[in-house]
Nucleic acid binder design. Structure first.
Lengths: 296, 296
DNA sequence: TGAAATCTATTTGTTAGACGAATAGATGTC
DNA sequence: GACATCTATTCGTCTAACAAATAGATTTCA
């Protein structure tokens, strides 16, 4: 191996990929814009490929950039893990953390309790609400780190898990057989709502929005009490719910993409520690293990 | 994250861990001894721990060093994977590769065929024989890269897989019930032989070495034809063999440790490519995913 | 016991290259 | 068409990584 890559460059690269801007990325990694620009230039020269497309307006990853990103992330995670492991004394501080309420119930307790055990001096201040509100709050600086779900299309933040979405009904209920189909879902802004509505229209299925709430438990209750049919990601399924099989005439839904988003200042050791913990606890994405499968 | 670690330092660190010498490691990474010495000094300062113990004669890893080593290796593998992925044109060259014959049968075809598919221009010259002979051949420069198995004690080379060892007999055969127990195994030098013999003595089991060969297929045949009982690692088990359950009075055997060893010159892109491929294809070791479990 | 050999650590001087500041060039906005 | 806001580039500075040489420590062998 001639000379290994420079993690500093990869860090800048990932920062740009995350926020879509050289200037903003520079702030995050505590460098000037020119330094970041030159780092990327050197990285691209080193690998002999264009990694980012600069369209004046926005910056996005090329295919090669995508291929690099996943692996670079992995290396940076391991790097942060090492630094965390060797950091003297326990890390201390407070993290304002946001998570969609549908995941909160199932996943949070496990994840946060094991995190608290290894990092007793980090206080995690948890907020549970819909992804849209979390993103809103992130904009005004209310959180340091949030987990949120996004549609299949636009990707920003750090994608670390995908999940199948299922139509669900109550066991032995009538809602599923009703026409038009009564549906329980989040408010207008709900990311999945648009996807589901579009899918229903595509198969010309009659439906009506029978129940709306920005509270996930409220929606679950509506489904469980047979008021309506709902759609949920795999890990939000609850006992008493019945997954509607593909044989029914309901359209297949797109996958839920779960990502991590940091405030621009949240790139320190304690944030890395929590982010790493979440990704390794519930992440289900990884680069294909062998190059065999990764090669084009 | 203040400033990420330097992969260059980690590379030197791993090279030292692999060969137990600053001077030799320096040759491998194409630097002077002083440069390597200073790199380690900086790395130890950075992490605030002693990573290597220099006892004048030999150099070995401290506990902190061990913890770092596994993660550093992972990063270096990913690094090599990236460079491989982006290397222009197909890598070309010849690799003189050695592998124990017991593994050759089961694993080689799959591994090498997928490797050839992604790296058609790399010629892999395969030698199949017992680990001891491979190590012997490595000493005199006959191989670039070998896979070999070692006992539970001494570790050198790059450990990437462990496997349970099983006592095996033929289906419905008599050998297992015979007293003293007839055993088929490798020659004197066989690593497992000492372990098995020691285990038998520990439980005061009478046995006799009934069949000896340095050829793994010969031993398998002896077991299959009920001439004797044998002991094999999990992945060398073959149809027609019966694993002797723990209820029988045979002692539990230690695990087989499978490692990779490179010639001192074999640190280039094509060697990395094959080494990575092998490790990701058949490796079953990894750093614990979360720090939770890794913390002391 | 002492000389030679062979380690690692340290010192010194040189130099590449990474960075920040300033500027140019490009693009979209009002 | 002026302005704002990106990224690229130029320039000068300075850090820090390196090779070469040397010192210090330890083992080996006579």
């Amino acid at each position: 191996m001639a000379v290994p890559l420079d993690l500093d460059q990869l860090q800048s690269f990932c920062a740009i990929a995350d926020c879509g801007s050289f200037t903003e990325a520079a702030r995050r990694v505590h460098k000037t814009q020119s330094a970041v620009s030159m780092q990327i230039k050197r990285l691209e020269e080193r690998l002999g490929r264009l990694l980012l497309t600069r369209d004046g307006r926005s910056v996005s990853l090329t295919n090669h950039g995508e291929a690099l990103y996943a692996r670079a992330r992995k290396m940076l995670r391991t790097n942060a893990e090492i630094l965390d492991h060797f950091s003297d004394g326990d890390l201390a501080g407070t993290i304002r953390f946001g998570v969609p309420d549908d995941y909160a119930v199932r996943l949070l307790p496990v994840i946060l309790s094991s995190f608290q055990r290894t990092h007793p001096k980090i206080v995690v201040d948890v907020a549970c609400m819909a992804s849209e509100q979390l993103l809103e709050g992130m904009k005004v600086g209310r959180y340091d780190l949030i987990v949120f779900t996004q549609g299949t299309g636009s990707t920003f933040g750090e994608l670390f898990r995908t999940e199948r979405m299922f139509w669900v009904a109550s066991h032995g209920g009538q809602a599923l057989a009703t026409d038009p189909l009564p549906i329980a879902c989040g408010p207008q802004c709900c990311i999945w709502r648009a996807d589901a509505v579009e899918a229903l229209n595509r198969v010309s299925k009659d439906y009506r929005i029978a129940y709306t709430s920005s509270n996930a438990t409220a929606i679950s209750s509506a489904v469980l009490s047979d008021l309506a049919v709902g759609f949920l990601p795999e890990s939000a399924l609850q006992p008493g719910m019945r997954v509607v099989s593909d044989e029914q005439n309901l359209p297949r839904l797109g996958d839920a993409q779960i990502a991590l988003l940091r405030a621009s200042h949240a790139y320190g050791s304690i944030y890395d520690a929590l982010a790493n913990h979440i990704v390794s606890s519930m992440g289900n994405l990884d680069v294909h293990p062998t190059l065999a499968s990764a090669a084009e």
